[in-house]
Amino acid sequence: MLALGLTTLLLTATLGAGPSCTGRTASGEVFATCFEPDFGPVVGTGLRLGPGPAAIEVLAGLLLSTGEESRSKGTPWYNRHRLLLTETWKGEHTGYTFTAYDGLLRRHLEDGFILVPTARPLRIPFPFDVAVALKGGHLERRAWEGPGWVLETAQVGLLVDPLRANSPRRWLAVGPAASHVLRHTPNGTEHEVSPFTSLRLDLGWRSEDGWWTVNASGLAGWSYDFEQGTHFRARAEGSVERVVLALNDQPVAVRLAGTVIQGDAGLARRNEWTASAGIVLRPFAAR
C-alpha cells in the first residue's frame, strides 16, 4: 500500500513536471505565465543603429507554428511560418523590407537512416533530421539609394538538423540553398541566381515558458548574374528576446537584434551592419 502510494505520488509529480502556465494573485485572480512566441501577430518598434545616424524602426508580421504528423510518412513535422513580415526604418537612410513568406519545415525522426534499396532493404544510420527552408517574395527598397528595388523571388534551402530535437522549440538547420533575385534599376532588371551555391544556417531556441526567444540565421555563398558573372555575398542575422511584462496576458518583450551583410545590401551590394534595440508585442501569444 505504501509502495502504491509512493508510486502514485511519483507519477503525479512526473506528470506535473512541466511549467505551470498560470499564475495566481493573492486575491485568487489568474494570469498567464507561459507564451508561444511563434504564434500570432507581432508588432514592435525600436532604435536602429548602423551606417549613418540612428533611425526609428517599426516591424510587424504574422507568425504560425505547427507540429503535425506527415500523412505520407507518419512522422512529425515541426513547421514555423512567418507571413507578411514588414520592417521599416525612418531616418536619413529610410527604407523598408517586406517578406511575403519565410518558413522552416523540419521532419523529425527518432532514428534517422539511409535506405539502400537492395533486395532486403539495408538501413544505415543517418543522425540528422531533414528540413526545408522556403522563402518567397522578399522585397527591399531603400529610398536613399534612388529609384529601384531588390526582390528575392524565392529561396529554397535543403537542410539537415543535427540537434534532432523532438520539439518545435529547438533547431539547428544547415545546408545548401538556392535563390533567385531581381535587382531593378532605371537601367533595367538583373536576374541573379544562386543554384545551391550558398550555405544557409537557421538556428532557433525558445525556453519552455516562452520567455526567451533566440533566432539566428546566415546565408553565405556565390550568386550568378547572367550579365555580370559571379558575386560572393554573406549575411548573418540574429535576435534575442526576453518577455519582461504582459499587458492583459499579452507578452511584451525586449528585443536586441543585429545584422552583418557583406556584398549584398541594397541595389549596390554594399557591406553593412546594423544593430537595434526595442520592444515587441505579441498579442494572442498566451498559452
Binding site: G112, F113, I114, P117, F126, D129
Partner: peptide
C-alpha cells in the same frame, strides 16, 4: 533511378 533514400526521402 532511385539510388537510396535518406529518412524516407
Amino acid at each position: 533511378a532511385i539510388l537510396l533514400a535518406i529518412n524516407d526521402q
